[in-house]
Each structure stands twice: as structure tokens, then as C-alpha cells.
């Protein structure tokens, strides 16, 4: 099986072989590629970046992201949760907007401030 690594802009083209349960990865320039390939063939994970509504006129949308990666098949469910939120109080970069979203063990965090620092 072949795949491109998405861990960094290098985008290494990797070949994954499964010989009697022993998995080898070639083509990756670093260890991240190996870890990604193993994860990708068992349970693919992704990060999600989006925005949430705010009550602030000057900043109507606040950018957010998952604090880590979530199962790929949960992306749209997580988007649903993100879309339920309206931020009405000032938040700072890194603040948790949704704690442990859908029990994934990952939070939705603010990636900007709602105020001009």
C-alpha cells in the first residue's frame, strides 16, 4: 500500500508492506511518517480547524481547533458540536471552548483572542 504522509510539507511518498503481520514503512524521511502510516492503516486521525460564532461586532467569528487529533470518521460530528457554540465573553488564545468534545479526550480551543491585545 502507498500513501503520502501529511505530517509536514515534505509530503513523503511512503510504501507500507505487511509481511506476516510485520509492518514495514519505506520512503518516510522521519519517524513521524512511520507513526502516521501505522495510525493511518489502523485508525486514521485528523485535526479539525473551524470557527465559532461570537457576540462581538468587530470579531464575528473566533477561530478554533481541536487540541489534538480525533478519529477521522468523527470530523462532521465534531463540526456539529462546534457549530452549536456562540462565544459571548472574551476568550484568549488557548482557552478551552468545548471540553473533551464527544468524549474524544480532545478539547476545542480558541486559536485567537476576541479582543485586540
Amino acid at each position: 500500500m502507498n500513501m503520502y504522509c501529511i505530517e509536514c510539507p515534505n509530503g513523503c511518498f511512503m510504501e507500507i508492506t505487511d509481511y506476516e503481520g510485520k509492518i514495514t514503512v519505506t520512503g518516510n524521511k522521519c519517524k513521524k511518517g512511520y507513526v502516521y502510516a501505522l495510525q493511518e492503516i489502523t485508525a486514521p486521525m485528523r485535526t479539525v480547524c473551524s470557527t465559532v460564532k461570537t457576540c462581538f461586532r468587530n470579531i464575528p467569528r473566533l477561530p478554533v481547533r481541536t487540541s489534538g487529533s480525533i478519529p477521522k470518521e468523527k470530523i462532521f460530528e465534531v463540526m456539529n458540536e462546534i457549530n452549536k457554540i456562540t462565544v459571548s465573553e472574551n476568550v484568549s488564545i488557548g482557552d478551552i471552548i468545548i471540553n473533551n468534545v464527544l468524549n474524544t479526550g480532545v478539547d476545542i480551543i480558541a486559536t485567537s483572542n476576541t479582543y485586540e491585545s
Binding site: 503520502y4 504522509c5 501529511i6 509536514c8 510539507p9
Partner: peptide, 10 residues
């Protein structure tokens, strides 16, 4: 390539 994969193929 990473964007072809994670933005389109996904």
C-alpha cells in the same frame, strides 16, 4: 501533496 490528501481525498 499533503493538502491533496487531507483536503480533497479525505
Amino acid at each position: 501533496m499533503r493538502n491533496i490528501v487531507q483536503c480533497l481525498e479525505d
